[in-house]
């Protein structure tokens, strides 16, 4: 039981990690896009509405997919004034509770935003600016997808904590182990 939980959690976390590692490059693309727009306008008076819109499209996708990857890497921020003084078992409880709550919130938002995407898709929404990027619903669709990933990651972390708690043998913690800082 504990092993199954752990390996499921591990698999889910790995999937989130790989998706995140790919999505991370959107940051570099963003830097290059904005820099290109600035320099091309200044030096060649070249400007494209679509490329300007691409700036915040890239930011949006990065911000949304970053959530699950950030959680995967243990980058969530907490107030640890009391937490640090709690016994280990209670810390695990807070940890599991936090992840289950996050799971619930993420599922709820994914569900809410699926409707939001649907109403955009139903009318083939594009940019209101001529020359802007078409198919706005694709950008909006990043929302439910990203929140599903977040839900998966939150559940995986909760499962890993429970599994480790149940497992008699010590297991290296997943995810947090390679915390970035």
């Amino acid at each position: 039981m504990a092993r199954l939980l752990l390996s499921l959690a591990d698999g889910a976390s790995s999937a989130v990690r790989i998706i995140g590692q790919i999505a991370a490059w959107s940051g570099l693309v963003l830097v290059l896009t904005v820099a290109f727009n600035v320099l091309a306008r200044y030096f060649f008076s070249y400007g494209s509405v679509a490329l300007q819109e691409a700036e915040w499209h890239l930011m949006g996708v990065g911000a949304l997919f970053g959530m699950s990857y950030g959680l995967n890497q243990g980058a969530e921020v907490r107030v640890d004034v009391v937490y640090d003084r709690l016994p280990r078992r209670l810390q695990v409880f807070v940890e599991v509770l936090g992840n289950l709550l996050l799971f619930a919130v993420a599922v709820l938002i994914a569900w809410l935003s699926a409707r939001y995407v649907q109403s955009s898709y139903a009318i083939n929404e594009g940019s209101p600016d001529p020359g802007g990027l078409p198919m706005r619903y694709l950008l909006k669709a990043a929302m439910p997808v990203a929140f599903v990933l977040l839900a998966v990651q939150a559940l995986a972390r909760a499962a890993a904590d429970i599994g480790r708690h149940l497992a008699p043998i010590p297991v290296a913690p997943s995810g947090e182990a390679e915390s970035l800082i």
Binding site: G27, A63, G70, L180
Partner: peptide
């Protein structure tokens, strides 16, 4: 690229979930 992604995500994570 990866660290910048995680760090921005940390900020956006709070901003996004502050909306409800």
């Amino acid at each position: 690229v990866r660290s910048a992604f995680v760090t921005s995500a940390m900020v956006f994570f709070i901003l996004i979930l502050a909306q409800p």
